[in-house]
């Protein structure tokens, strides 16, 4: 009669899976790329909810990060920047073999997934501790962190250069 927490979690997961797929299909079929970019925000939000719903205790931290950085920065940057262009209408081309190739890619991808995950010993992930996360980031992943910081710095310079008039 009453929904258990797991049932609720599964229902939310199914609803947002459908939202994610619908947003993705809208992106590839929309005739106006501005609306497609807005739809990417819905895709990002759905993915954030799906990730949090996989294991709320372990992954909600990343989910918030995904909403702030991906939806809040990347997609908004993309949508706002599109205003600079005239003629955002997409000329439709229909490649006859595109559905076949994408189906083949999906089958190959899923086969690799099934093969690689079949040998995994299933266990629940522990809740991450922010202090341990920070310590790991600094001790084990310091080089990627520096690369990321330099990348973001160049992005900022590039954004300033883009905003300048000729």
């Amino acid at each position: 009669m009453f929904l258990t927490q797991t049932d609720l979690q599964d229902t939310i997961f199914l609803v947002f899976s459908v939202t994610a797929l619908a947003s993705a299909l809208f992106i590839v079929n929309s005739k106006n790329v501005f609306y497609a970019a807005v739809s990417l925000a819905f895709l990002g939000l759905s993915i954030a909810v799906l990730i949090a719903d996989l294991n709320p205790a372990a992954y909600s931290l990343y989910s918030v990060f995904h909403i702030i950085l991906y939806v809040g920065a990347t997609v908004v940057f993309l949508s706002v920047s599109l205003v600079m262009f005239r003629g955002l209408e997409v000329r439709e081309i229909r490649t006859p073999w595109a559905p076949v190739i994408s189906l083949l890619a999906a089958v190959a991808f899923f086969s690799v997934l099934v093969l690689s995950t079949s040998s995994i010993a299933i266990s629940a992930p522990p809740s991450p501790d922010l202090q341990t996360l920070g310590e790991r980031m600094i001790s084990q992943y310091w080089f990627p962190a520096i690369v990321l910081i330099v990348g973001l710095l160049t992005t900022m310079i590039e954004a300033i250069a883009l905003a300048r008039r000729d």
Partner: peptide, 24 residues
């Protein structure tokens, strides 16, 4: 895959870097 394998730190750190690079 990480939720199956019981990992919580590795996907977090990996995805933070991936999203940062995606922004770039």
């Amino acid at each position: 895959v990480s939720s199956l394998a019981g990992r919580s730190y590795t996907p977090l750190i990996f995805s933070v870097f991936a999203i940062g690079m995606a922004l770039t």
